[in-house]
Design a protein around this nucleic acid. Sequence first.
DNA 1: CGTAGCTGCTTACCT
DNA 2: ACAGGTAAGCAGCTACGC
Length: 679
Amino acid sequence: MSLDQFLKRPQEKRKQKKEEEVIFKELEQEEVEKLKEEKKVKPKKEDLKKPVSEDGESLEGIILDVGYDGQNAKAYLWIYDLNTQTLKKWLDTSGHLPYLLSNLDVTEIRTHHANVLRHRGFAELKTIKKFDLLRDRPIKMTKVIARDPLSIGGRINSIRNMLKGNSWEDYIRYHKCYAYDRQIVLGMPYQIRDNKLNPIQPEISDSIRTQILKLFESEKEEYLLALDQFLGYFFSPIPNIKRVAFDIEVFSKADRIPDAGKAEEQIIAITFAGTDGLKRVLVLKRDDVEKGERISECEAELEIVASERELIKEAFKILEKYPIVLSYNGDNFDLKYIYHRAINHLGFQKAQVPIYMTTTPQSEVAHLKNNIHIDLYKFFHNRAIKISAFRNMYSDVSLDTVGKTFLEEGKVCLEQPISELCLHELGYYCLHDSELTLDLTTFNNNLIMNLIILLMRITRLSMEDLTRQGVSTWLRNLFYAEHRARAFIIPNPEYIQRLKGEASTKAMIKGKKYKGAIVVKPHPGVHFNVVVLDFASLYPSIIKTWNLSYETVNCKHPECKENKIPETPHWVCTRKVGIMALIIGLLRDLRVKYFKSKAKDKEISKDEQNMYKIITQSLKIIINASYGVFGSEAFPLFCLPVAEATTAIGRDAITRTQNRCAELGIEVIYGDTDSVFLK
DNA sequence: CGTAGCTGCTTACCT
DNA sequence: ACAGGTAAGCAGCTACGC
């Protein structure tokens, strides 16, 4: 089948594959009806900020976040309404419910695990078909459906604990489960009409279509299917989302960094800079501090506020008007400080504060109840962003350094401690930081925001998650979504390890898990007329061409055992295309065969060229990280045989290159991983 | 007692 | 909390010679 034929009927194809899903849907619909009858679903109106439902209002927008609304017992989406430039909360109307999968059949559960059926949140048992990639066979599973996520897991008496050892996919957070099943792509445009959610398909011009068609003519159907899906992510327009950056200043003695958890000192300034041109400078009136002279560079009027309470209240009012709020270290400082200051020192009730904190083992996150909060410090701190996207351009992640790197402008230099500045100086200093923070997302035609949206689409993560999490979470989410979309069981780490085992090679470095790349000892001296050769994205290419994936390496089929991987006892499947090889290969091909040349195409407009550059950049980050995660326990689909197969094939390629050079009498004066320096 | 040589640890850089 | 490989600095230990 050609791509063209294929693209003409993607919807039909999908429907066929989704028959099973339709059955679930009907089932779930019944469930919801039942629940409604039981009056267990009581929507509380005041919690919903303009629900998009009741009056059949229609809406077009970009999905930015997904979550679970406990009071309404439904999944919800935050959608950025393109018309009003506001966030709309949309509650699920499909009746999707939380569930886990069990390898026990319905009668087994009924007879031997009757406590599951007696669980107060239990809803229904349903037999479904799944495919087990590791054993390469279809299996029947029981879907154990519950009315709320906590009945599945998270409590001592949750259903997953009753089915311990026989339950699957029970650790996936419900809102993720919902997004996977509905195949919701965060960052993509959707339409809501009659309270139903539908994706808006991007228009791809005929010339682009034929160009791409030629490139991928010889690929298999499953490749084309995935191609069709991913192409949409790159060709859907990205809106410039309305947003505001803010910064606070806190009184401090002797220039000590204040403790945001205690928030003992006064907040003396809060400033804002928005994409709509808004600039606000709120400073606290202090009897012992002069107002001072107006600073000519300051583009906003100073607003002196009489009390700290008023200052914070006004700040909350401003934040409310923007769908996205930007901060630099807001998770650990600014928003956290305001939160604790308001509640512990200024007598605010929790309900009056639009901020709430969540604590994970790694770090704290400050959430806004009605907006998306991006902490740019965390985003720029991400190693993949720092190294892969920006080639280590900034040495540390301070606002000053990052600002200087991208905006050629750092923070305002101060000669006095903050607490001693006159109000005008204080306001100017604080506003400048807000402006810098905003500019970090607007420079170069909104490069950073566009990059964030593209990465959201590829990884299917929400804006808040993508900007805070590392690449192992990004790739985990991408692969989980792809498993669900194909009705593949998501294997847990123990299952992969049990079937695939440990690494077989020994690392050069003590404490490492397997052998890595070859580095040719440099020949000392000054060399002239040196030629450098290297492989283009070696590891991702290996993963694609050798069909490497957790299920294809050391597969079950006897006939594949002949297909040996050099330098290892491993072999690789000849019958099935590996899921990892498929996705990584596709992303690599799109980058190398199409977008890379587009980014340099002089025939197209500068803006278009720029967009293609950002697309190549986003692909590069994902591709570069893909090999690494296979060797990392932090990645739940990690598989050491896959990781060591990748490096072993890489070593083989470079060694054979070296040997060929020796045959030809060319001296290899240096080489590292994927390159040779020749003289 | 002084020191060569080892190990372990860290940090920075390479792909 | 994406991987391994190389190089260098430093502290602390041990074996060995005087």
